[in-house]
Design a protein around this nucleic acid. Structure first.
Lengths: 134, 134
DNA sequence: CGGAATCCCATCCGATACTG
DNA sequence: CAGTATCGGATGGGATTCCG
């Protein structure tokens, strides 16, 4: 069963029986990974746990506020584990949970597609924009 | 090369040489598919072109405003083709472009993961929330 | 039918300041 | 060090109205 057939079939199923797009797994996962920092933070934790400030250095643009918020949300969803070491000053280490490890595989597929095709996308954009200018 | 190694390596590369997260392909694609309607609309077009109002029926909650906006954006990115038939009243048909067809494969992987694991996510959330209540 | 225009609210997110 | 609290601008997105 190829991807087309599968997706078309699943979509048809979701539509049936009072389709609630907020409950749909598609949106459930896309809402999570679609935000500004989640994926970059997850990637920074691949293969190595990191402390709060180490993540902030690895993902240069993220503010403390958004880093805290995104980490909390990831922890809530069972994607990362937060461990506090009661040293002085305190240090906190974040580790990918098995759930997130499982996510890496399909995520890698998506990112491969992104790298392979973002040139095509930008070309399409330029063409569309110059056509629209007329 | 497994997904972990690949992702860690790519992430390390992106970090080097004035990493601009807005330019990074990761964000480029996630910004696109992470919004509220894009993926659902793409799925509604798998295997069959549809007209504007047919898409709206297929994706029940979308407003005309957001449908128009999302379709424009998809067209701009070369993901769909818009064809106008000058009938009266006019009819407009939308078709998946090859770029979007290519995207279906990695997207299907992600959605499979979502369906397989959203129960685990909800369980983690319940546990986190009850723990936080104390 | 397939939009475009306008209004408006909700939230996202960054900047800044403060804290145990 | 690893946060929390607060503010305010930008953006997302729904509802409604109008149009060729």
């Amino acid at each position: 069963m190829n991807a087309h057939t599968l997706l078309a079939a699943r979509f048809a199923e979701w539509q049936q029986a009072e389709f609630d797009s907020n409950l749909c797994p598609v949106r459930d996962v896309l809402d999570q990974i679609g935000d500004k920092w989640t994926v970059l933070i997850l990637l920074s934790l691949v293969g190595q746990p990191r402390r709060f400030s180490a993540i902030q250095r690895a993902v240069p643009d993220v503010s403390k506020r958004m880093l805290t918020q995104t980490l909390r949300n990831l922890e809530r969803n069972g994607m990362i584990v937060r461990e506090v070491y009661p040293t002085k000053p305190p240090s906190v280490e974040y580790t990918l949970a098995p759930l997130a490890e499982d996510l890496l595989e399909p995520l890698a597929g998506l990112l491969r597609w992104a790298e392979a095709n973002h040139a095509r996308i930008h070309a399409a954009r330029r063409q569309f924009d110059t056509a629209a200018a007329a």
